[in-house]
């Protein structure tokens, strides 16, 4: 019996070790050497900036050369930022288990950009961008982040990067006097930080804020409101039978509609419907609607 139990334990331990080993051995495809390292060297950057400055010297302004140098710097840095982002993203996935634990998640979420990625190169890029990785903090609501999956944050990072990348590429069509290197540098900073965990979290917060705002446009009715709406509908039926639209006209004018006793019956009905539909999506307008319809005497 004891022998059997020991055998089971050893077998289970070997299975667990074997499975863990498999996980550790999973690797992506081999990356070609040409794209596996940053390509834009610090010396290239310094040289191109000096050449750009010379080309934009008012005494010997050369906008064609300035654009060429600006574009080379921007494309070079974008290529390196892209390399760093993929490296950083890969490390995030490896560490993604930590995201399930509130405390670690929070700590990781607030870590600086250089913490997980290719530290040395990130530091160089940040130095070129003139930004410190530290200090780029966002306000944190633990509950908010606990509800978000790791994949959602990475997707938000990608979305934010794509938006900034498109803006930069559009701007590069302009000449160096309309989109100078300094403006490009500002956008490159944004491009870099969009690809950090903080950038992803900020994007998610903004998306959630936008969703919360759209929720205000959902119809919110109570039974009391429905009772009043039914009374209004019955009153409208009476108006159409008697053909006395004076109270409705008074109400519509109070709601900003340009109608009078010469307006056709069908136009008056549609004007009323337009006001009602607008009020259904806007709580403030609905408040006014309910006040004015009583004031006009459509309902008591």
């Amino acid at each position: 019996m004891i022998y059997t139990m020991s055998f089971c334990r050893v077998t289970a331990a070997l299975l667990v070790l074997g499975m863990t080993g498999c996980i550790a051995r999973i690797k992506g495809p081999a990356v070609p050497k040409s794209i596996s390292t940053p390509v834009y060297k610090d010396s290239d950057f310094s040289g191109d900036v000096a050449n750009y400055r010379a080309a934009t010297d008012p005494a010997k302004l050369d906008l064609v050369a300035a654009k060429a140098y600006r574009d080379r710097i921007v494309y070079g840095m974008m290529a390196d930022i892209e390399y760093l982002f993929r490296d950083y993203e890969g490390n995030l996935f490896i560490n993604s288990a930590k995201f399930n634990i509130g405390g670690d998640f929070l700590e990781l979420g607030l870590s600086t950009a250089a913490t997980l990625g290719n530290g040395a190169r990130t530091k160089t890029i940040l130095s070129a961008l003139g930004s410190a990785a530290a200090g780029n903090r966002i306000s944190i609501d633990k509950n908010f982040f606990r509800q978000r999956t790791f994949e959602a944050i990475v997707n938000a990072m990608e979305a934010r990067r794509s938006a900034v990348e498109k803006r930069i590429l559009d701007q590069l069509q302009k000449s160096a006097d309309l989109y100078p290197f300094e403006a490009a540098l500002k956008d490159l900073r944004e491009y870099f930080f969009a690809g950090t965990l903080e950038g992803g979290l900020t994007e998610l917060q903004q998306e959630t804020g936008a969703a919360a705002r759209t929720n205000l446009h959902r119809v919110e009715a109570t039974k009391e409101m429905l009772t009043e709406a039914t009374a209004i509908n019955h009153s409208l039926a009476k108006i159409s039978t008697t053909k006395d639209y004076s109270k409705l006209i008074k109400f519509l004018r109070a709601m900003g509609k340009n109608v009078d006793d010469k307006t056709s019956e069908s136009d008056l009905q549609q004007a009323y419907r337009d006001v009602a539909n607008a009020a259904l999506d806007d709580p403030e307008l609905m408040k006014k609607f309910r006040e004015e319809i009583k004031k006009a005497g459509v309902i008591p």
Partner: peptide, 24 residues
């Protein structure tokens, strides 16, 4: 119009009938 799908069926029914009655 949009209605909040987290609401109960009865609440959504009230919302829809309010839209109908109020908006003719």
């Amino acid at each position: 119009h949009f209605v909040d799908g987290t609401k109960t069926l009865a609440e959504q029914e009230t919302d829809l009938n309010d839209m109908e009655q109020l908006g003719a």
